[in-house]
Simulated assay, not measured.
Amino acid sequence: MELGLAGRRALVTGAGKGIGRSTVQALHAAGAQVVAVSRTQADLDSLVRECPGINTVCVDLGDWEATEQALHGVGPVDLLVNNAAVAVLQPFLEITKEACDVSFDVNLRAVIQVSQIMAKSLIARGAPGAIVNVSSQASQRALANHGVYCSTKGAMDMLTKVMALELGPHKIRVNAVNPTVVMTPMGQANWSDPQKARAMLDRIPLGRFAEVGHVVDSILFLLSDRSGMITGSTLPVDGGFLAT
């Protein structure tokens, strides 16, 4: 299916690893002009070698002032993928202020800030656009030791709907993808215990975790005009987990 992404300009956060990195690679292969955002310069350097011609921004999205300054001059963007996230797993009775601060700063507040910057530019230009927020099945199901993470992703789902409501009149679509466990470095770190993984797999009708490509394909579809009548949705990429 031709998605018509060639020539569009896209910004991807959390672009250094995992889903974000693969999204940059797929957009680049589709002919899009990509701005890759990561807090790790070495990851951006290697990504440029793999995808010559992309632009990069190295910034910690948990820092509001630094993010504002870093993204101020990136130029017009048509498409945005809010993928950057952290997963600090703690039992509820042991949740710390630090875990709350870093998780909400990156997983939610940065989504608001980056989306504001991009949406204001689109509106000023009178241009249509599309935003995809990378959420999680954890936004809709309680998982042990995921109190803060589940909360940030639940908030992201509702933020997605409010953004779609308010930005729709400006021809800006906003959707979320909600993957199950994906075997990225973060996924491997949190789900490498076979007993823990088996308990999750037993709840997934298809009986397997997601591959990065499953999520990237969904992101690209929601960015494209092929999904031109879809906004405010949360798309499970979960093998049926949320259906059980």
Results as ranks from 00 to 15, higher is better:
residue 115 S to T: 15
residue 127 A to P: 09
residue 128 P to C: 08
residue 126 G to E: 08
residue 144 A to R: 15
residue 116 Q to G: 09
residue 157 D to V: 07
residue 114 V to Y: 04
residue 140 Q to G: 14
residue 113 Q to C: 02
residue 143 L to S: 11
residue 130 A to M: 00
residue 103 S to Y: 03
residue 121 S to H: 11
residue 135 S to C: 08
residue 164 A to D: 02
residue 152 T to A: 13
residue 129 G to A: 09
residue 105 D to S: 12
residue 139 S to H: 07
residue 130 A to N: 07
residue 121 S to E: 13
residue 160 T to C: 06
residue 136 S to V: 10
residue 150 C to Q: 04
residue 116 Q to E: 14
residue 163 M to K: 05
residue 119 A to W: 00
residue 103 S to K: 06
residue 121 S to Y: 03
residue 114 V to Q: 03
residue 107 N to H: 06
residue 144 A to K: 14
residue 137 Q to E: 06
residue 150 C to D: 11
residue 132 V to K: 04
residue 154 G to T: 01
residue 144 A to N: 15
residue 122 L to C: 05
residue 162 V to F: 09
residue 157 D to Q: 10
residue 132 V to Q: 00
residue 144 A to M: 13
residue 164 A to Q: 08
residue 138 A to M: 06
residue 104 F to I: 04
residue 123 I to S: 01
residue 157 D to S: 10
residue 131 I to S: 07
residue 131 I to Y: 02
residue 138 A to C: 02
residue 138 A to S: 08
residue 140 Q to M: 03
residue 119 A to V: 15
residue 165 L to M: 03
residue 121 S to W: 02
residue 127 A to F: 07
residue 163 M to E: 00
residue 140 Q to R: 15
residue 151 S to A: 14
residue 107 N to V: 12
residue 114 V to N: 09
residue 149 Y to F: 10
residue 104 F to E: 10
residue 111 V to S: 10
residue 147 G to H: 02
residue 147 G to M: 10
residue 148 V to S: 08
residue 121 S to K: 11
residue 134 V to Q: 13
residue 103 S to M: 03
residue 140 Q to Y: 03
residue 165 L to V: 11
residue 157 D to G: 08
residue 162 V to S: 13
residue 147 G to E: 04
residue 151 S to M: 14
residue 142 A to R: 14
residue 163 M to A: 12
residue 107 N to T: 08
residue 128 P to Q: 03
residue 136 S to N: 03
residue 111 V to C: 05
residue 110 A to D: 11
residue 117 I to C: 09
residue 141 R to E: 15
residue 148 V to T: 15
residue 145 N to S: 14
residue 127 A to Q: 12
residue 124 A to H: 05
residue 128 P to D: 01
residue 137 Q to F: 14
residue 108 L to I: 08
residue 159 L to K: 01
residue 149 Y to T: 11
residue 154 G to H: 05
residue 118 M to T: 12
residue 122 L to E: 01
residue 112 I to N: 02
residue 128 P to V: 07
residue 107 N to K: 01
residue 154 G to K: 00
residue 117 I to M: 12
residue 146 H to S: 08
residue 161 K to Q: 05
residue 106 V to C: 02
residue 125 R to K: 15
residue 108 L to Y: 09
residue 146 H to P: 02
residue 148 V to L: 13
residue 145 N to R: 12
residue 151 S to Y: 13
residue 107 N to M: 13
residue 130 A to L: 08
residue 164 A to S: 12
residue 143 L to Q: 06
residue 121 S to N: 15
residue 143 L to M: 12
residue 158 M to F: 11
residue 110 A to I: 03
residue 127 A to V: 03
residue 155 A to P: 00
residue 104 F to A: 03
